[in-house]
Amino acid sequence: MRHLFRLAAGGISLLLCSALASAAPAITVLGKDFTFPNKIEGLPAKLSDFKDLQINHFTTSDGVKLAYWEAGKGKPLVFIPGWSANGAEYLNVMYLLSKQYHVVVLDPRNQGLSQHVDYGSRISRFAADLKELNEHLGLKKADYCGWSMGASVLWSYIDLYGTKSINKVVFIDEPPSIYSHADWTEKERQDAGAITSDAERMIDSFTSGKAPNKMIVDSQAFQRFTLMDSPYFQNSENFAQAVVKNNIDDLKRVMFDHVTNDWRDVISKRVDVPTAIFTGVYSDSLTGQRWIHSVIPNSELHVYSAKEQGDHFLAFKNPFKFTADLDNFLNKP
């Protein structure tokens, strides 16, 4: 959901060989270095300081060339960005985690550095793309983290393929159902985390720059983004804007499918691996995040405070805390 904000402001061994053969340093792929606006201790001052970062590609079964950002060695940890988002925004998160993990961030089709096409714009196809990335990398099992729409992609992945390839899973601030049905009680709406009762008008507001009223979309994500109240966030967003050029028409195609899916049955019945949920006091669907925690046995819920940048962009606004909390969860027995 970030393009509007920007407008306003044989087998496994062969697969691994193929992945290595196509590996390229990020600075080579992008063709230039990048100096971040804020110098922050413990994070790169320039893109070239992140020497381990690569941008690689693979081609899906339906012929789409997808990009993925990759760094580090160790246990595999795969990130799926939200709508309109991309690996460039994960640079700080990747830098911190790559010291202990093999970190991969997939640019979904029509996003980031991946190919733009006029087909496959469904959450189920995005889930298939994730499965094919796993196959390309030869990942039998990994930890996964989905932010915003990326969590929906993971729910679809679990619905279609189960959890046998998932070690642990993390969901960051995605409503179980964005769309509120007319016959729902207020409790059902809040538990689902729903923020709109008009999918078409919500999509129009998120893709045109028109500020909606709360009767159409009850969201403070726009305001939270435009605050740009974190030097970490300023760095990653400036970098993303410099290297990625989104096309709103391409991005728009997946939105209706995304908005109208209801994942409550998958969340409550199919998620059977260790789970962490991250959200914050400024979340549009805090009650929905608490509902997810209540229906997944032994799950963890992390609610970031105002001082901890507890909004939809918490992982990017507070990467040191987020990566520390994530690492602690992933390393629990």
Rank of each mutant, 00 (worst) to 15 (best):
T196E: 05
E200Q: 11
R201K: 14
D204R: 12
S205Y: 04
S205R: 06
F206G: 01
F206D: 00
F206W: 15
T207G: 07
T207V: 06
S208Q: 10
G209H: 08
K210V: 14
P212K: 06
P212A: 13
N213D: 15
N213V: 05
N213I: 04
M215T: 14
I216M: 07
D218T: 04
D218I: 01
S219C: 03
Q220D: 11
A221G: 00
Q223P: 00
F225Y: 15
T226Y: 02
T226F: 04
L227I: 01
L227S: 14
M228Y: 13
S230H: 05
S230Q: 06
S230I: 04
F233V: 01
Q234G: 01
Q234A: 03
N235C: 08
S236Q: 15
S236A: 12
F239A: 10
F239K: 12
A240H: 15
Q241C: 11
A242W: 13
V243P: 05
V243S: 08
V243C: 09
K245R: 13
N246Y: 08
N246Q: 15
N246V: 07
I248P: 13
D249P: 01
D249C: 03
D249N: 14
K252F: 06
V254Y: 05
M255H: 03
M255K: 06
F256E: 06
F256K: 13
D257N: 14
H258N: 14
H258K: 07
V259N: 02
T260K: 13
T260P: 01
N261G: 09
D262R: 03
D262N: 14
D262E: 07
W263D: 14
W263M: 05
W263F: 15
R264N: 05
D265V: 04
V266A: 03
V266K: 00
I267R: 07
S268Q: 09
K269V: 01
K269M: 09
V271C: 09
D272N: 13
V273R: 12
P274S: 08
P274A: 08
T279Q: 05
G280Y: 00
G280I: 00
V281D: 01
S283T: 02
D284A: 08
L286F: 03
Q289F: 00
W291L: 04
W291R: 13
I292S: 06
I292N: 05
